[in-house]
């Protein structure tokens, strides 16, 4: 810090190892893009798990998606897209030095983030109520009397089948307990529910896998939304102490880039989890 005193005319907002404010801005931005690339790879592991399970066991995903509310998912998509718009507008406001507008746009984006988390809360509590949870916590107890006919997972094999191999025979631990539809119990072809296309599909073995993947993916995304709220609170603090005076907008720009990635990931999560027919 003391070095600043020796350089007359040195911009205090530019760190010493940078030639100019522009070079500093470009370096910050490159660092942010590298971080965002690691974020994509962070979620990437979960997308790999999703793809491998869905390709090999599509019936598990058809069953699981039945319990997700497409309307709430679509509402959250609209809310996030709108918040992406407000934070993109906030960058413009910061660039043009419109600080009052900037404050309102940051607050609007935060409000959208809270609405998103509120809708998520409604969705999560419905899953919680029905025991549609991850892995070992999966213990469905559904209302309306339309319990899945195939029992609650691998332990209870369907009893209605004749001649077909048992879906849940735990004889060989290395063997998948999920029978493909072609040779599985007749329940998978669902003759009983064929009359009503909106009836709940019969529960396949290992339906819990869907809910494990659902909670991991939306949970990690939700944590990112919370981090986004924290980042925007930080922006408001920076705004209050005058960091954005004189058209300095890098911090707003970086938080906006992060927020857009949260939006992009949700665009895919909505499609891949909610819109399975």
């Amino acid at each position: 810090m003391a070095a600043h005193h020796h350089e007359h005319g040195h911009d205090p907002s530019v760190a010493h190892h940078f030639e100019s404010a522009e070079q500093q801005r470009q370096s910050t931005k490159l660092g942010m893009w590298v971080f965002l690339a690691t974020e994509i790879l962070f979620f990437g592991g979960l997308f790999v798990a999703y793809t491998v399970y869905r390709v090999n066991h599509p019936e598990v995903f058809v069953f699981g998606a039945y319990f997700l509310d497409t309307a709430l998912g679509a509402l959250n998509t609209v809310v996030l897209i709108f918040s992406s718009f407000t934070i993109a507008w906030a960058v413009r406001a910061a660039q043009l030095g419109q600080l009052r507008l900037l404050r309102w746009l940051i607050i609007a984006t935060m409000a959208c983030a809270f609405v998103f988390m509120g809708v998520k809360y409604v969705e999560y509590s419905a899953k919680w109520k029905h025991g549609l949870l991850w892995a070992g916590s999966y213990n469905p107890h559904l209302e309306h009397g339309d319990e899945p006919a195939a029992g609650h997972g691998e332990a209870e094999a369907p009893s209605s089948t004749t001649g077909a191999p048992e879906a849940g025979a735990p004889a060989d631990p290395d063997r998948s307990t999920i029978a493909p539809a072609a040779e599985g119990p007749h329940g998978l072809a669902a003759p009983a529910v064929a009359a009503d296309p909106h009836a709940m599909p019969v529960e396949p073995a290992n339906a819990r896998v869907f809910f494990s993947i659902y909670f991991m993916m939306t949970g990690l995304h939700g944590i990112h939304v919370l981090a986004g709220i924290a980042a925007m609170l930080w922006l408001l603090r920076c705004l209050g102490r005058g960091d954005f005076d004189g058209g300095r907008f890098t911090k707003v720009d970086m938080v906006a880039l992060y927020w857009h990635v949260v939006d992009i990931i949700w665009i895919y999560l909505f499609l891949l989890l909610y819109l399975i027919d």
Partner: peptide, 8 residues
């Protein structure tokens, strides 16, 4: 792993 795979 799965008897009958691939499903034809």
């Amino acid at each position: 792993l799965i008897p009958g795979w691939p499903v034809e």
